[in-house]
Amino acid sequence: MAYSDKVIDHYENPRNVGTLDKSDPNVGTGLVGAPACGDVMRLQLKITDEGVIEDAKFKTFGCGSAIASSSLVTEWVKGKTVDQAMTISNKDVARELALPPVKIHCSVLAEDAIKAAIDDFKKKRQARQEQA
């Protein structure tokens, strides 16, 4: 348990908490849950037409590790391209936050949330293209 000093900070002062407009075509929403603890996490990404993530917001109801994990990934993804963001893995999150095995699922949740949000964005874009 090599503790990261930043971790507690992510829990006590989480970054990027909030909501983006779900109906905005450039916003992708990811929603994931963890039955192990009954927690839910919503992650939203605002992505430019060029595929760059310009904003990220999250709302997590859960334990400290889940909050810290989602706060951390919103910081990481900003400015990244969609493809870069897809490569973030739960292992990176777990390592950064020094999560013990029992809390690994929190980092998995964060990874899944990014993927789900990007997925949602892609679906929206596809639907738009099909309409056009």
Partner: peptide
């Protein structure tokens, strides 16, 4: 136990 910087499991 302390699981990560300052949190208790």
């Amino acid at each position: 136990l302390e699981t990560m910087g300052g949190l208790v499991e």
